[in-house]
Amino acid sequence: MTAVLRRINVVGIAAMFSVLVLWELSVRTGLVTFEYIPPPTRVVAGLGEIISSGELTTNLVHTLTAAVVGWAIACVVGVLAGLALGLSRATWTYSMASVDALRALPIVAFVPVAVLLLGFTMEMEIVVAFYAALWPIVLNTVAGLRSVEVRLLEVGRVLRLGHRGVLWKLRLPAATPFIIVGMRLGLSVSLVLTLVSEMVGNPAGLGFALLQKAQSLQPEQMFAYIVVIGVAGIVLNAVLMALARLLFPGQMAASGESA
């Protein structure tokens, strides 16, 4: 509990609140007169509206489901692909040119392709989220497997750990912090790309709601959605890190992400 409390940045939170107060004051006193930038209190009211109408829950569940399912599949596929690339010279030689070419293309460019193939569906969103998260996970897994020090592999030989032992006791644990970094990056891009696919493709979820609120001139609710999206990203990342610290305490502590 004290560890959790210590992680809370009191000064940072205070600074954030002062900015919000400043924002509120400048709108109220007429210092700034943008018609479509409501003060924080009105955004809070907008949040109340979308909560009580129930649309927030529906949209939030829709978007998070698509993003997290796509990301989870990417975790499994990405780590396996990373293992194949990182452990087998032949796979690396044959595939790396394609991997580099594919990941260099902006992921957004694949959204219309996914819409064309799968239509305005949640499956389309999942595929986009999957594709977005795949690359950071694959590449970080490969980098992690390569990060094992030569000396440690010699220790493995001297202690006669065998190929399986070296993989499970040395290579994978050494790669774990890298894989976690890949998963964190993947999680944030899959959320972003899910929102994009809802804005330009499937008319559902938070992405579409954001667009709708802007077009129907309801800035309070639009800003409320922006806040929700931001908080969702923070919460997802925090949950992932808590899980990582729980499952891999040694690796996380050794890489400076102590519990």
Binding site: E149, R151, L152, V155, P173, A174, G250, Q251, A253, A254
Partner: peptide, 12 residues
Amino acid sequence: FQDYAHSLLPWR
């Protein structure tokens, strides 16, 4: 080995 820091598993 001489380089103990690199010969131990930091996560264990």
